[in-house]
Amino acid sequence: MGTVVLGTGSCLPKKVLTNVELESMVDTSAEWIQTRTGIETRRIGGKGEKTYQLATKAAEKALAAAGVSAEELDLVVVGTISSHMLMPSSACYVQKELGATNAFAFDLNAACSGFLYGLDLADKYIRANHDMKVLVIGAETLSGRLNWQDRNTCILFGDGAGAAVCGYSDSDRGVIGSSMHSDGSLWKLLYMHAPESSNPDLIVKGNNGAYIQMEGREVFKHAVRAMEDAVTRLLVKENIDKESISLVIPHQANMRILAKLVDRLDFPQSKVFINVSKYGNTSAASIPIALDEANSSGLITQGDTILFCSFGGGFTWGATLIKW
């Protein structure tokens, strides 16, 4: 008995940015990008594709798949670090667009772990009140938060949104458990400044702009170790062996991180869902986009045990197990 995913949905911008196109924008080559990251293309938001608009379209698909109306929602949570406004939240915009008049709504900032943090939160709410329906969304337009002259970051990220409608089931299905973590002491390895303060006493030194800055090699090492640890701890805690996992859906950071993680965890490639080559790193949107692709393509069937794991700026990281 527990929190189940009733329906999933996703939305990707129309514009596709290829590695070849990036060659004319920044000092890099298509071959270098492919070799270093495994990414071939990424989606870039255009007109009518702000974060909340992508989130709304993903949510509409998830609601339709779940057979749940917007009026039935009690809570809307959007994991994002790229809302087009600081206030109101993207979640409030989504609530308005959907007509979810009975829900309260807020954004959650946990970078690439935003969707898993949101799913964990939904599980807590639903376990406390079995009648609740919670919409969890991961949505990003990181193309507007990049320094397009920095080849170490601009080649990695893309835009998109994914959503899941969650509710209660008295069957043996649902969220089995989660393992959520953070370490604020390592923030300088991966961060993004806010726009410069209009109060001179509060101006942050070294603020060169509100875009992603990253120490790639250090992030790589911490990401692999952290996700491996979160997964291992969760499997031990829930007394579940790796062989019983039907599908692993990790955060789609880049192929080097994914390959190392899969190797360390010793999962067969056939059980790991990867779509990073098409979309790049979409931060909080990466897991729900991948989940919706796996779900809609028939790779997930009722009774399967699904493992999610993620790592993002903050640092934040975690793992979640769910029986579908």
Rank of each mutant, 00 (worst) to 15 (best):
T56Y: 12
P88K: 14
I126Q: 01
E218T: 07
I306P: 03
F115S: 00
S283L: 01
A64L: 15
E293D: 08
K237E: 11
A164N: 02
P195D: 10
A64C: 12
G7D: 06
A284R: 05
V204G: 02
E218H: 06
H181K: 14
A55C: 05
G144C: 11
F106K: 09
A100H: 02
V77S: 01
T8M: 00
G313K: 01
K323I: 11
A230L: 02
P13S: 12
R173Q: 08
F267W: 07
A319Q: 08
S83F: 15
G46Q: 08
S178Y: 11
C92D: 04
S83I: 14
G7T: 02
E23S: 03
L54D: 04
Y125T: 08
M25N: 04
L190F: 13
C309L: 13
I245N: 01
E40C: 06
P268R: 15
S297A: 08
V4P: 00
Q302T: 15
T28Q: 02
V76R: 03
S24Y: 03
E228V: 10
Y93K: 09
P200L: 14
V77T: 06
D183T: 06
V76T: 09
N147V: 00
E40F: 03
E31R: 08
L75Y: 11
G184E: 03
H222W: 05
S171P: 07
G67C: 05
W148T: 09
A294T: 06
L247Y: 01
S182K: 04
T8I: 06
R217Q: 15
T232H: 06
G312R: 03
D172V: 10
E243Y: 15
M192T: 12
D229Y: 12
I176Y: 04
Q53R: 04
L189V: 10
N129P: 04
E196R: 13
K260V: 04
S198C: 11
K271A: 06
A59R: 01
Q53F: 10
L247K: 03
V231N: 00
L186G: 08
K57G: 07
A55M: 03
H222E: 10
F311V: 10
C166F: 07
S29C: 09
K96A: 07
E23F: 00
K47R: 14
G2V: 05
W324E: 05
L116W: 02
M214I: 13
A223S: 14
S90T: 15
G38Q: 03
A105C: 12
K242C: 00
S185A: 11
L12V: 13
L86P: 11
L54I: 12
K57C: 06
